[in-house]
């Protein structure tokens, strides 16, 4: 991939957090199968992208991925979960909507939009007058991904989502320049206190 940073020894700086999925399935599949313990995991991680930086682009940022796997995890559960989680993050009632989207690790895959945080859905310049903001990809975990993790997709289903954690923080606090977050500037950063 063009936008990945490679090191001299052939390793790379990770460009997304998805690699962790397989490790999590392998670690917890026995508990899932033998003891009926559902897998519910979130894994934030620092990601890197080899691109020029500006107010909207950073080469170093945080992403977070989440999965839930059990016998009857459904699209209905996915929508409920995303709506609840995002409402908690933003501390207000967030409307979500799904649109079909193609992502290799999920099927069906969705683009998730949330009601605009600025105008609440009425339409404003920041949502290009649509009332919605495109937030993150999500979907039902692809059967092959479960299989690769040692989980039988005929018996288990699951959902997964990937969130731009840095972007989420920017939206929540109204940070306009993503580079502020890695700037080390105490004038910027000392505003983020420990209350929330």
């Amino acid at each position: 991939m063009q936008d990945t940073y490679y090191l001299e020894n052939g390793q790379l700086l990770k460009s997304q957090t998805s690699a962790a999925q397989n490790a999590i399935y392998k670690k917890y599949k026995d508990a899932l199968v033998n003891d009926g313990v559902p897998i519910k995991a979130i894994f934030p991680g620092r990601c890197f992208r080899n691109e020029a930086t500006d107010a909207c682009h950073e080469n170093t940022f945080f992403q977070m991925e989440g999965v839930m796997v059990d016998k009857n995890i459904s699209i209905s559960n996915l929508i409920f979960f995303m709506k609840t989680m995002l409402s908690e993050v933003f501390q207000k009632d967030i409307k979500v909507r799904l649109r079909p989207g193609f992502f290799p690790f999920v099927e069906p895959g969705f683009e998730l939009d949330i009601s605009c945080l600025i105008c609440g859905g009425e339409g404003c310049p920041s949502c290009k007058h649509s009332g919605w903001l495109e937030l993150c990809p999500c979907g039902m975990i692809h059967p092959e991904v479960l299989k690769a993790g040692g989980i039988d997709p005929e018996e288990y289903t699951g959902f997964a989502f990937g969130l731009g954690l840095t972007r989420l923080a920017m939206m929540k606090y109204g940070v306009k320049d993503i580079r502020d977050l890695n700037s080390g500037s105490l004038r910027s950063l000392s505003q983020f206190t420990d209350d929330e």
Partner: peptide, 28 residues
């Protein structure tokens, strides 16, 4: 694959029309 068929059925059904509820699972 079969999961692709789920997408066909649900996208025409409309995700806005879904009755949404939380996953029920034991806590460990």
């Amino acid at each position: 694959i079969k999961a692709d068929i789920i997408e066909e059925i649900t996208r025409i059904y409309g995700y806005d029309n879904f009755d949404i509820h939380t996953a029920k699972a034991p806590l460990y």
